[in-house]
Computed example of a mutant assay.
Amino acid sequence: MKRLIGWIVLGLVATLGVTAPAVPLPVELPGGKANWVVSVGGLHDAADNNYANWTRLGWYIFAADGTVRTNYWMWKELDEPERVTSMTASCGGDVPKCPVQTMGSFLTGPTGVFQGTYQTSDGKVDVTWTKDGAGQALTPALTEHWLLDPIPGGKVARISSDGYHSTVAGPVVVPSTFSSYSASFGIGYGSNAPLSAGNKVSITDIRTTYGQDEFVGTFVRANKGTVGREGAGLWAAGFNQATTFDQWRSCPSGKCVGFREKTKDGCFCEKFPNPRDRIRYLADAPPARNNIYTYWCECLAQGAACYQANNHVQSLLQIIDDDRKFQGWVGVETSTSVDSRSLKPNHDFGSAYWAVLNMVTPDLRGPQPGKP
């Protein structure tokens, strides 16, 4: 009887011309991955945007119904965001005990939100942001066109903007193919590992378990009025290899490591030629996959123990693959130019560094600047 009633209902629907509601077909996740850490930048020559550069760092979460959401931190060069101390690195040896600086907003959860839709096809991912976090329409909508790159092993996938990867170092022509708005460069990695803090690798584990790896990548930066590309890297030649570098040293808290890089050529200070060592720190930060990376040339400290003026400040998010293994970072640099005495912004926008970067294991790198 129930089956007969069902057939009668279907017959009535057909007779009356009523169409059953369509069920959305599943959309292919980019590379089969739902959770991504992504760095995006609006980096342009000063002649084109008068130093209105910006960076955005966060995560993209793709759903099978064709929707996508990003939670992000954002920094604008013209706002001149100031450095704050996240902790004091006490690493011992010849590594100076100094503040590890970052952006204050990076020590709390991201406040920016976009919501939108996406499509995948033929090695590409098109993302359209249509709403903000409150559900208000973005007018106009913001569109991004990503290249989806295969990664050996299938444990992680990569998206990048056209023109991000290249073997050519030095000045670049800013591409106009990436977005419908001012975003010009981007890099991201995705897996199906949750984005929660429980899937974050500690600084101690990075040093001990992954210290043999050299994490390198691409650094696309706006500085001195132009946009350029160069290599990015961390760990030099690794922790446990015989090199000309001292090894990275751990802080007693386990929350940071420090490194005095002894180099004759890499650190140049015109007015203060000696010494030329570079000081580097990598530190933990809340809330989820956040890490902090800072470095500075010792000669700029002019004999002081620490340098807090125009050190390089980078905010990083860890890349974790499907097996919960650490594979490197995506990040941004937001180094405001400040007065060396007051440590306050000096409005010298040309001397600031605004950048998009990745530092990853060999399989994740893509073409490297200066390397065939």
Rank of each mutant, 00 (worst) to 15 (best):
A283R: 00
P287L: 09
G233Q: 03
N310I: 05
E270P: 01
P252I: 11
A242C: 13
G303E: 06
P273G: 10
C306Q: 03
A305P: 04
G231I: 10
K264F: 15
A288S: 06
T243S: 15
K262H: 12
T244W: 00
D246M: 07
P287F: 02
Y281C: 02
G254K: 07
C267A: 14
N240H: 11
A288G: 00
W248C: 01
K264A: 15
A236C: 06
C251I: 00
I292W: 04
N290K: 05
A232E: 09
K264N: 15
K262G: 07
R276D: 13
L234N: 02
G233D: 09
I279H: 01
Y307H: 07
T294K: 01
G233M: 03
C269N: 10
K271R: 08
Y307G: 01
Y295C: 05
F259P: 00
Y295F: 14
G266K: 14
A285T: 05
N311F: 05
F259V: 06
S253F: 04
L282H: 01
G266H: 13
W235Y: 14
K264E: 12
F272N: 15
G231D: 08
N311W: 03
V257H: 01
C269V: 13
Q241Y: 12
Q241H: 10
Q308H: 09
D246N: 12
R280E: 09
C251T: 05
L300G: 04
G254E: 06
F268K: 13
K271L: 09
S250V: 11
E270W: 05
A232P: 01
N240W: 12
E230G: 14
R289G: 05
C256N: 03
C306A: 10
F259A: 02
Y281R: 01
G233I: 04
C251P: 00
C306R: 04
A236E: 07
G238M: 07
D265A: 12
R249K: 14
Y307R: 02
K264S: 15
T294G: 04
N291T: 02
E270Q: 07
R289Q: 05
P286M: 07
Y293K: 01
P252C: 14
R249I: 03
K262R: 13
N291D: 12
G254D: 07
R280M: 12
G266S: 12
R249E: 02
C267S: 14
F259C: 01
T263K: 07
A288F: 03
Q241N: 09
C251A: 14
C306E: 08
Y307F: 13
E270S: 11
W235N: 06
A237T: 06
C251E: 03
P252K: 13
R280F: 10
Q241A: 14
L300S: 04
A309C: 10
N274C: 08
D265S: 14
D284Q: 09
K262N: 12
K255F: 08
N291L: 07
P286Y: 06
A304R: 14
C251Q: 04
A288T: 08
C256F: 04
D265H: 13
K264I: 11
W296P: 00
T294P: 03
E261C: 06
E298W: 02
C299N: 00
F245S: 00
P275Q: 11
F272E: 14
D277H: 10
A242L: 12
R289A: 08
T244F: 00
A242T: 13
D284T: 03
N274G: 10
L300C: 05
N291E: 08
F268V: 12
D284G: 02
N290Y: 02
Y295A: 07
A301P: 00
P275K: 10
